[in-house]
Design a protein around this nucleic acid. Sequence first.
DNA 1: TTCTAATTTCAGAAAAGACTGAAATTACCG
DNA 2: CGGTAATTTCAGTCTTTTCTGAAATTAGAA
Lengths: 189, 189
Amino acid sequence: MHLPPLAQQFVLHFGEMGSRWGINRTVGQIYALLYIAPRPLCADDIVESLGLSRSNVSMGLRELQGWNLVVPRHIADDRRDHFTTPGDVWQILRTLAEERKKREVDPTLSVLRELLMQTPSTEDDRYAQARMAEMHGLIEQLTTWYDDIRKLDSERLVSLLALGAKVTKLLDIKDKVVTLGRGRSDRKA
Amino acid sequence: MHLPPLAQQFVLHFGEMGSRWGINRTVGQIYALLYIAPRPLCADDIVESLGLSRSNVSMGLRELQGWNLVVPRHIADDRRDHFTTPGDVWQILRTLAEERKKREVDPTLSVLRELLMQTPSTEDDRYAQARMAEMHGLIEQLTTWYDDIRKLDSERLVSLLALGAKVTKLLDIKDKVVTLGRGRSDRKA
DNA sequence: TTCTAATTTCAGAAAAGACTGAAATTACCG
DNA sequence: CGGTAATTTCAGTCTTTTCTGAAATTAGAA
């Protein structure tokens, strides 16, 4: 691997973290490399920079495209495919959230729905089903919230984040405004 | 594995999902079993229910305790250790968020900080560092938000989720209120 | 203390996953 | 159409992770 020092450290870190993030070392490195590359790279650039086999790079790029984290970009007068990561980090965050939800949450949600349709056959199954219902409820609330949030443009998303827990204060303000508008006495209904 | 039907399906699903969630099959199954168990289980109960080796169960329990997802619970007149999952699903969510952040986010944040301290030695490294700064900024904003949110009790967290993107509307309301209070003309300062 | 039950450790076996190079396929050019 | 460059596929190899059983350790009861 011959890369400038900063790039190298960044790439190595992403490789190490790969397994924790549910991707493998090579895929992590390829992503990192493309993320900091000042221009789209072709597969051979990656082979050279990271010292991987050509076929491994091909598979890694495929996986990253499957995550929508890497996109092909055509370069004039070059037959080879080139690849980049979309530049806007907020967009990257959205993509990551979307894909992780699809892989890590949706299958469970759908299994839970199935299991909640069934009739428990033992006392323990009855209890188990109640616990599953709790989990299902939680996930539903989270995904409903997420479906709502994901539609925000980046600017609004940022201000929402900046607001943080202060939102609850706003909630109180809203309460007051509504109450004042109506006259009185129906708060916390 | 001999478990009532619903329990069995639930446990098998968690086993399959394990690898996507960064734990292994057995650990996923053990967690699932404890989650739906109507009372604390000892290691041998788990061995019997899931058909794993005693030592594997021991290691799985250790890992789950490391995640704070499973806690030991002493049972009167029984020398064996028993284990449960904390009951409140919102608390489970907090724990999960906390632990995943610790494992998946914090190390990267700290590496990024280090790399941003260094002086780039090539033109490409300069660009790379700028990209790292973008990533760092994003993660900082997210973790700041998270640090704020995590302090909320479950009730407030739920209402915040229920609010979803409507928060931005509230922001507008706040703007108006503030503006009215002040007189006029200094919105979006 | 001694005895026994419960648990953990750990070296090696088994399984899963990642990686490679050679061969096959695809895509483009003349 | 060839011919060639680029890419993908895949069977086999290598690496890593998971799992096991036997041995060691720990903790409680007598």
